[in-house]
Simulated scan of single mutants.
Amino acid sequence: MKINKRKTNVQVVSRREHKALDIRVGGEKIKKVEEFKYLGSLITRDGRSQKEIRSRIEQAKRIFFQKGKVLRAKIDLGVRLRFLRAYVWSVALYGCKTWTIGTLDRKRIEDFKLWCYRRMLRIKWTEKVRNEEVLKRIKGDRVIWKTLVKRRARMIGNNLKHPGMLATVLEGMVEGKNWKGRPRQSYEDQILKDTGCKSFVEMQRLAQKRQEWRDATH
C-alpha cells in the first residue's frame, strides 16, 4: 500500500484534549486535524454529528436558492414538493444514516423543513403565520424525519442480516470508564427507539424477519 504523505492526516476521536501526536511516514510528520471530510461527510474530533448536520442544512439551503425559480413557481404544489425532495432534501439528508441525533439536532432538521415550506409558499416573516398553518397549507408533516428514519433502519436492517464490519462495530464494547455526567445518546439507543425493541439482541432477531422489520420501521 502506498501513502501520499501530503494528503494524509491523523485525528484522535475523544472528548479529552490530547497532546500533539508524533506520527511519521518516511521520516515526515503527519499533520493532526480536528475535523476532515470523508466521502462528503464531516468527521469531527468529538465524534458528534452536530457540525455535519449544520453543514448539510447550509448546503441544502444554497441548493434551494439555486432552484428557487422552480420551487416557488406557480405550478402544482405536489410537483414542487417532489422537486424539493429530489433537489434539496437529498443534499440535506446525505449521510443521515450514520448520524446520532439529539433533541436540538432534530429540532434543527424540523426547522429547516419549515424554512423550505415557508419560502415555497411565499410566506413573509412579517405575516406571522404559525407553523401549524404552514403545515396545513402544505398538506404534510414530518416527511423529512420519516425519510431519515427509513433510511437509517434500512441500512441497519441490511447490516444485521448480513454480518460484516458495521455489525461488529455495533455489537462491540469500548474499553474504559464512562465519562462523568449525563451519558450521550448512543447510535444504538436511537435505533432501538425507532424499532420499539428493548435490547440489541431483540433488534437483531427482528432484522432477520424482513416483513416484521419493515412494519416496525415504517
Rank of each mutant, 00 (worst) to 15 (best):
residue 137 R to N: 04
residue 84 L to N: 06
residue 169 V to Y: 13
residue 120 M to K: 10
residue 161 K to R: 15
residue 101 I to M: 06
residue 101 I to Y: 07
residue 117 Y to P: 01
residue 86 A to L: 14
residue 108 R to T: 13
residue 147 T to P: 01
residue 55 S to F: 02
residue 142 R to V: 11
residue 77 L to P: 14
residue 162 H to W: 10
residue 153 A to Y: 08
residue 77 L to R: 09
residue 104 L to Y: 14
residue 122 R to F: 10
residue 126 T to H: 10
residue 123 I to G: 05
residue 142 R to P: 05
residue 147 T to M: 15
residue 66 Q to S: 12
residue 72 R to K: 15
residue 102 G to N: 11
residue 87 Y to M: 11
residue 135 L to Q: 10
residue 176 G to S: 02
residue 116 C to K: 05
residue 83 F to H: 13
residue 32 K to C: 05
residue 84 L to A: 06
residue 116 C to Y: 10
residue 92 A to T: 05
residue 143 V to W: 15
residue 50 Q to S: 12
residue 49 S to M: 04
residue 33 V to W: 12
residue 83 F to Y: 14
residue 93 L to Y: 02
residue 128 K to D: 02
residue 81 L to V: 06
residue 51 K to E: 09
residue 110 E to R: 12
residue 81 L to I: 09
residue 90 S to G: 09
residue 38 Y to C: 10
residue 46 D to K: 13
residue 108 R to G: 05
residue 102 G to S: 03
residue 158 N to T: 03
residue 101 I to F: 06
residue 170 L to K: 03
residue 58 E to A: 08
residue 52 E to I: 00
residue 94 Y to L: 01
residue 87 Y to C: 14
residue 86 A to G: 12
residue 89 W to G: 00
residue 163 P to W: 13
residue 150 K to T: 03
residue 111 D to H: 07
residue 94 Y to D: 00
residue 70 V to Q: 11
residue 138 I to W: 08
residue 127 E to P: 01
residue 66 Q to N: 12
residue 78 G to K: 10
residue 73 A to K: 07
residue 90 S to P: 08
residue 121 L to K: 03
residue 114 L to M: 11
residue 151 R to I: 00
residue 91 V to T: 06
residue 53 I to R: 04
residue 47 G to Y: 09
residue 67 K to A: 15
residue 138 I to K: 04
residue 95 G to Y: 04
residue 176 G to I: 01
residue 114 L to T: 12
residue 98 T to W: 11
residue 146 K to H: 14
residue 76 D to V: 03
residue 59 Q to A: 13
